[in-house]
Design a protein around this nucleic acid. Sequence first.
RNA 1: GGGCCCGUGGGGUAGCUUGGUAUCCUUGUAGCUUCGGGAGCUAUUGACUCCGGUUCAAAUCCGGGCGGGCCCA
Length: 471
Amino acid sequence: MVRHLEKEDNFGDWYLDIVEKANLSDKRYPIKGMNVWTPYGWKAMRNIDHFIRKELDATRHDEVCFPLMIPETEFKKEKDHIKGFDSEVYWVTHAGVNELDVRLVLRPTSETAMYPMFALWVRSHQDLPLKVYQIVNTFRYETKQTRAFMRVREIHFFESHTCHVSEEDAQRQIEEDVEILSKIAKRLCLPYFLSVRTDWDKFPGAYYTVGIDTVMPNGKSLQIGSIHHYRTNFSEPYEITYEDENGEHKHAHQTTYGMSERLLGAIIGIHSDDKGLIMPPDIAPFQAVIIPILSKDNGPLVTEAARALEAKLSEYGIRVKLDDRDARPGSKYYDWEIKGVPLRLELGGRDIENKVVTFARRDTGEKGTIEIENIGQGVELILRMISSSLLEKAQASQLSKLQEIDSLDEIPEGKVLRLGWCGCEECGHKFEDSFDLKILGNPYAKKEGYAGKCIICGKDTGMSVLAARTM
RNA sequence: GGGCCCGUGGGGUAGCUUGGUAUCCUUGUAGCUUCGGGAGCUAUUGACUCCGGUUCAAAUCCGGGCGGGCCCA
């Protein structure tokens, strides 16, 4: 009997266990925080990337690919930026036997790689907006404990970078980014919330940062992405200027948008139970698995029918896997449950006689039959139901973990808190340090007003912030 | 930056104090058999992190490297 840890008892160990048992990543590579993407994990990540590409292409971003290394001289042009990343970049100091005159950094993010080139590409207002993105690996020397997909040193990363004629146009880009996020998150069945980060927590060099966070089952928040407005903070040192209609030279206003493999970490954390993972159908490497049920006298018949079923579903566009290993069905059920395949299809003598396939939903355990005649539509329908049910459940769970407080006497465990804050840095730090909580920021685009008191100093305030323990 | 702990088949472990044949579970492989919720039988592959020292003899003791983890700043 193989047992695994229970999710509610100890989320950290449970997460580790499931990543290993579902074989999503191999952490035995001998560098801390640099794990190997296994075929199963990589398939899931590529499916996530697929939706990112789809939405960015649809909003007229162009995919590019910049070099991994950045010369120190370019890296140091924006002062806050270098200060923010100083302690966590990898340096390349030698080439062969020679020490380099100009050291190279492995990109922790690509602003400083792209912007010298943007300065060459952008000349006229007609070149704007410039909207590019890339999906690459970035490097950050994490000193804290690393964890597959959630905190790593080599990060599979999506980043988009845009240049605009004005601050307003850049602001519109940020709104578009929020739209894009909602579409991608729906595919991944991921609930999330947006907060404008505090000044001391914004991206180094940014005018402001919108953090994208989600809540793990243990009530800790996990940042899964961010959107930044740079104004002209980078275009000035990097001299990204354009000539407007009147012949005047102006600095471009810039934004960026980034998300990483943490999206996969969040999916694992949120959609799963004590039996293992539950993959959202849109990103599942295999959306359905076929388990043939053989017996003494019908072996060849069932095998042949199973192959036909696989071909039919595959032709219909379903990612399907026929498990024809020489093992007993029960053992196969357990294997695919750990790996989170959304739909299991059983095909045995009984089913063939009745011209049906028996199915079992991974998320609810519900069983039933689908007529072979309409197998494609039948499977597609169930996958869609699983997808919306996963999203609903996750949203309800997130909602149950949000709690408003107006006093420091009653700080609940395992919740994301909403509380009043006067906005001054002193109160903010005092709150964060005393309670080991992080202020995530002011809810983004929250229309309803807030009337309350700063939870530290008691002053009346119209601003609320979200705060949580972080993963 | 300072301190502490740990490295045994693919995974999880016993053995280390008191030096002498490396334990158990799981996994892998082959065959037989079986197949509607982790079957069984038989055979079998596979490990002491590396380098040096002590010793007749080192997984075990000592030193160093490499790798990993934790705590403090």
